[in-house]
Design a protein around this nucleic acid. Structure first.
Length: 423
RNA sequence: GGAGAAAUGGCAGAGUGGUCGAAUGCGGCAGUCUUGAAAACUGUUGAGGGUCACACCUCCGGGGGUUCGAAUCCCUCUUUCUCCGCCA
């Protein structure tokens, strides 16, 4: 959520920047300022009404104590009127505050200067690529065929137990999954991230804190009976660990990593691009989350990008890094880098990581602040990234490492798997 | 799931209708003393709104109510603890 003060100070810059998201923000921002003016005005009126009422109450107390009941009763009538007034004003304040709040929820974050304008993923900007695209054997198979051939992932079993998009990993497939999780967590730990195990269900307040609610309600599974949401990413529980906190400056940076399954309804997705592991309702992901001093958040973002690169380099997967354009940028993000691995057998790029800086947008919702040297409270910056999402990494490995008589295991994973080939 | 108890500032813990935004202790910060540190002593120390700055307003788990006036009384929800039951 944007800060009112920032909107007031930088309205024109915000309007220009939000054009990159193809949004005409001018009416929204003007309305926000107008509502805030109204809110302040109402608040001031209410305050002075309450102040008058408070001082009268004190007088009444004194009058009763000194036995002047008659005079007290005269004042009581006055406070009665003030009470009516303050009730009306209080209702008006509630209304305008809620209106302002829901308006602010509708305004996305301001894209960074480096974010290219654009509408779709076609307009994303490739900024880096690495790794050779392997020459595969003739009759190379896509991962869903390989999964069947070597009996390591069973999509039909998942359909039987739950439904489409809930695969069952079997034997070496399951072991490879577990190996990847351990490997990612170890790499993140090495890089200074503290491993956490967090709940896989969150309450409504957490959904609001990181921005999944109110907009993306339909993307999360909701347990109505207990009013809880299945997490779509570890970002939600991990970032919300710090909801409402006031940090000390010397606590920065806070760096955490967590493995969780992720649950996404993916309403409306269909077609060839969602075959196999390409798009699932439940998948595994290892996430990294940072809470940073505002002066360091972009440096931290670059550091996260470099960190993810080292992992892909070790896995020897061909990948590229994209800077997302305004139209593709997530609602709460200022700047996002997507990592894509090349799926040779499908002849397409698969997104495997998304690394973002949210600046103060989430912090404002979370009320995640720190005290600076002058003792002033300011919003911290939050960042997160996948390091990494499992299914498409797995797809990339299966497809790119396939040989005539099986699938080889990337060298760094062999100690984790306990085998070097799937056959 | 049943029965009971509780929820107060960073923490501990007073406060049961009227200068209570809240005693006291610990912790934090600043200072005195000291070569330095510790100890001791003195001062200071919650959050939000509002203001140029004050004033002022709101907040004692959340919401609602009674009252001129609520941390304090009533209703309700949530959470925690104890006991019983069930259970990986």
């Amino acid at each position: 959520m944007l800060q009112l003060q920032a909107i007031r100070e930088s309205k024109n810059e915000f309007i220009t920047a939000l054009k990159k998201r193809n949004i005409d923000a001018e009416p929204l921002l003007n309305k926000a300022i107008a509502l805030d003016d109204k809110r302040r005005e109402t608040q001031t009126k209410l305050d002075s009404t309450l102040a008058e009422s408070n001082s009268l109450s004190k007088e009444i107390g004194i009058l009763f104590k000194t036995g002047k009941a008659q005079e007290a009763n005269v004042l009581k009538e006055k406070t009665g009127i003030l009470k009516e007034e303050s009730k009306v004003l209080n209702d008006a304040l509630t209304t305008v505050t809620e209106e302002l709040q829901s308006l602010l929820y509708q305004i996305p974050n301001i894209p960074h200067a480096s974010v290219p304008a654009g509408n779709t993923d076609e307009d994303n900007e490739e900024i880096f690529s690495e790794g050779d695209i392997p020459k595969l054997v003739t009759n190379a198979l896509p991962h869903w065929e390989l999964a069947k051939k070597y009996d390591i992932i069973d999509f039909e079993l998942g359909v039987k137990v739950t439904g489409a998009g809930f695969p069952v990993y079997k034997g070496k497939g399951a072991r490879l999954q577990r190996a990847l999780i351990s490997y990612f967590l170890d790499k993140n730990t090495e890089a200074g991230y503290t491993e956490m195990q967090v709940p896989h269900l969150v309450n409504e307040a957490s959904g609001f804190g990181t921005g999944q609610l109110p907009d993306k309600e339909g993307q999360m599974y909701h347990v109505g009976e207990d009013d809880l949401y299945l997490i779509p990413t570890a970002e939600v529980p991990v970032t919300n660990l710090f909801r409402g906190e006031i940090l000390k400056e010397e606590q920065f940076p806070l760096c955490y990593t967590a493995y969780t399954p992720c649950f996404r309804r993916e309403a409306g997705s269909y077609g060839a691009h969602v075959r196999g592991l390409n798009r699932l309702h439940q998948f595994d992901k290892v996430e990294i989350v940072r809470v940073e001093h505002p002066s360091n958040s972009f440096k931290a973002l670059e550091g996260m990008v470099e960190h993810v690169k080292t992992i892909l380099r070790e896995l020897k997967l061909p990948y590229r890094v994209l800077r997302l354009c305004g139209g593709d940028l997530g609602f709460t993000s200022v700047l996002t880098y997507d990592f894509e691995v090349f799926s040779t057998a499908q002849d397409r790029w698969l997104e495997i990581s998304s690394v973002s800086n949210f600046e103060a947008y989430q912090s404002n919702r979370l009320k995640l602040r720190f005290k600076d040297k002058d003792g002033k409270r300011k919003f911290a910056h939050t960042l997160n990234g996948s390091s990494l999402a499992l299914p498409r990494v797995l797809a990339g490995i299966l497809e790119n490492y396939q040989v005539e008589d099986g699938i080889e295991i990337p060298e760094v994973l062999i100690p984790y798997c306990g085998f070097s080939k799937i056959d």
